[in-house]
């Protein structure tokens, strides 16, 4: 096969893989997509994907085509993953040229996220209903709704400036502070709320339960590198949130003598 052609196909494959990985796809899905795209054009590649990068190489008649891509995962965007999945199926089953594929992938990359207010609203809804399902009252759910909304906004806004560790410390800190403030406000109206119920529910948009479960999913299906690194990520996020909340609770303990 012509040299340029091989390079272009590899580029399409790795571009598709990068988009998936950066939007939170599992490594096995990324490897599978890359292999399928390459195989459909008669190229059998060696491919190794970890959560922070893709290694891809192809040897033919003494020519080496190595590719290494370092990725930084920012968000989980399941819509983009579904779209790239559909794209790879379309690419494999048709005679799409690499130029067309590049254009399609660039379009997928531009898929709009939801606006910030919608993230905030849905984060709030999630937090509020979690409080209810943990046995909180309607007022506690309302407080959790407000807390979650503001925490989601702040964490999203900080995403451009800080890493996830600092961001989650700030998230936990603000979460506890806002919850305490709301309790004081409700107290003034003669309503007593439980701090723990509010904090539990409103923290749910931050806590890495899904990251942890995915870590085990990866490990069980044999991707141990990915599993271990996701487990580390989940534990670090949990430490960060607990640190943020813990600081506030400690200060409150020193101040008032009770948590």
């Amino acid at each position: 096969m012509e040299k340029n052609n091989i390079q272009r196909i590899l580029e399409v494959a790795i571009f598709a893989g990068r988009i998936m990985l950066e939007n939170g796809a599992e490594t096995s899905r990324v490897e599978d997509t890359i292999n399928r795209i390459c195989l459909s054009r008669g190229i059998k590649v060696e491919n190794f994907t970890i959560p922070t990068g893709i290694f891809l190489s192809y040897n033919e008649e003494g020519m080496h085509y190595p590719y290494i891509i370092r990725t930084k995962s920012v968000t989980i965007d399941l819509e983009i993953i579904a779209k790239v999945n559909a794209f790879s199926r379309q690419f494999v089953s048709s005679d799409m040229t690499t130029e067309e594929a590049q254009v399609l992938l660039e379009e997928i990359m531009k898929t709009p996220h939801y606006p910030l207010w919608m993230y905030a609203l849905s984060g709030g809804i999630a937090g509020g209903f979690f409080t209810l399902s943990f046995g909180g009252t309607a007022l506690e759910a309302l407080a959790a709704f407000i807390t979650s909304c503001s925490v989601v906004i702040i964490v999203k806004l900080m995403a451009n400036y800080t890493g996830s560790f600092v961001r989650n410390i700030a998230g936990g800190l603000l979460n506890a502070l806002i919850a305490l403030l709301l309790i004081q406000i409700f107290e003034a109206f003669g309503q007593t709320l439980m701090l723990s119920k509010i904090v539990i529910g409103s923290l749910m948009p931050l806590v890495p339960g899904v990251a942890m479960t995915n870590a085990f999913r990866d490990s069980i299906s044999g991707d141990f590198v990915s599993g271990v690194s996701k487990l580390t990520e989940a534990l670090l996020i949990a430490v960060a949130i607990a640190l943020g909340v813990g600081v506030v609770l400690h200060l409150k303990f020193l101040w008032t003598g009770s948590v």
């Binding site: 806590v207 942890m212 995915n214």
Partner: peptide, 23 residues
Amino acid sequence: PATVFVIPGIIPLVPGYGLYFSM
């Protein structure tokens, strides 16, 4: 892909609270 339904679906079950609470 099934992930689109799995990830939001397991959210109420995942032990996020336990992870936070043990820390």
